[in-house]
């Protein structure tokens, strides 16, 4: 992103940043309100994580410019996210398998 943007195109960017700001604020309120809904635990987790992921993608995509970022960085991040999920979920399977129900581990999530 260190290309020489002229001021006009930069101002377009600024408009986008402000819109993202607004969206993030709204989504924060939505998460809090959603936590007061009568949802089961797993539904609640699912909904909260969905909203958080949307917020995260907004920050990543616009503030951190990932939507226009070079391939190399995207690949490094994809790899990292893969290992991240490996690290988070494989130990979980060990826990559930331990509980004696190896085939239905997803039910506990």
């Amino acid at each position: 992103m260190s290309d020489n943007h002229d001021t006009a195109s930069m101002q377009d960017h600024v408009r986008v940043y402000l819109m993202v700001f607004g969206a993030l604020g709204v989504l924060t309120v939505v998460t809090v309100l959603a936590s007061y809904l009568k949802l089961s635990t797993s539904e609640g987790i699912f909904l909260a994580l969905i909203i958080a992921s949307v917020k995260a993608s907004l920050v990543l995509g616009y503030f951190m410019h990932l939507i226009t970022e070079r391939k190399m960085i995207i690949w490094i991040l994809v790899m990292t996210v893969f290992f991240f999920f490996v690290m988070i979920f494989l130990p979980l399977i060990s826990n559930i398998d331990h509980a004696g129900n190896p085939t239905q581990w997803w039910k506990v999530l």
């Binding site: 994580l49 503030f63 951190m64």
Partner: peptide, 24 residues
């Protein structure tokens, strides 16, 4: 810009910490 990336990341972590710790 580079520092900003770090700062947004710190924000990003909070975006997940907030629901995970406070709301669930």
């Amino acid at each position: 810009e580079v520092f900003g990336l770090y700062w947004h990341f710190v924000d990003l972590v909070w975006i997940f910490l907030f629901p995970v710790l406070y709301l669930l």
